[in-house]
């Protein structure tokens, strides 16, 4: 074998990691090669010096303090990049807000880019507006504006009676009305009635309608 092929084996020989077969080859070569014998001595000397040498010292608590300093450096880089850095609590609060912002932006894009979506009407009103206005007003009148829940149900029932496709409208209305009744049936059902009766309406007007409805009930 050539010296170049034996050289790596010399290191393994001194490390004690050489295989039996390679050890025999290396020893056979060393016995006849002065250069490799000299190399083996140098390698032995290097490992001995390395064994005796000691690891250099690290300042006390260095590893305890490293992470905070890495974090600080990250913040400093952000400051350089953006000119300022928000405190961590503010970043935590902003994270969900920015996520909501993304969702709203996507919804807005969907509405803007979807030509079939009518932004002027709620889903419920889209359904309601399919019916002639005077018929719906009749339904609202028939509901008698008794208790709020009953009033919503009356409108619901009335619309269903008039619908050419009751099952489809029913499913959509049911979902909407359930939500309205449980959470804020009062105001929404008033809105429904008001929207049918008036074109534009604001909160004050809604309140006055509610008062009027209460009087009617009494």
């Amino acid at each position: 074998m050539k010296c170049d092929e034996i050289s790596p084996l010399l290191v393994e020989l001194k490390e004690g990691t050489i295989s039996g077969e390679n050890q025999a080859l290396a020893e056979q070569h060393i016995a006849t090669c002065a250069k490799c014998r000299a190399d083996l001595v140098l390698i032995g000397g290097a490992f001995e010096a390395l064994r005796v040498s000691v690891d250099e010292e690290v300042p006390t608590h260095y590893f305890t303090n490293l992470l905070p300093r890495v974090r600080q450096r990250l913040d400093e880089r952000d400051v350089k990049k953006f000119g300022f850095v928000l405190p961590e609590w503010a970043q935590r609060m902003l994270a969900p807000a920015s996520a909501i912002g993304v969702v709203i932006s996507m919804a807005a894009l969907f509405v803007l880019l979807n030509p079939t979506y009518d932004t002027t009407q709620s889903p419920l009103m889209q359904i309601v507006s399919q019916f002639p206005k005077d018929e719906i007003e009749g339904v609202v009148d028939m509901a008698n504006y008794s208790p709020v829940i009953a009033r919503t149900s009356e409108i619901h029932r009335g619309i269903l009676e008039m619908s050419p496709n009751p099952s489809q409208v029913s499913r959509q209305l049911e979902r909407q009305f359930l939500d309205d009744e449980v959470n804020h049936g009062h105001r929404l059902s008033t809105f429904l009635a008001a929207d049918i009766t008036f074109d534009d309406i604001n909160d004050d007007e809604v309140d006055s309608i509610i008062d009027r409805l209460k009087e009617t009930t009494l």
Binding site: S7, P8, V11, D39, L42, I43, A46
Partner: peptide
């Protein structure tokens, strides 16, 4: 080969 030369040079 690199490791061998490195150790030898240190020696």
């Amino acid at each position: 080969a690199n490791y061998f030369h490195a150790v030898k040079k240190i020696g």
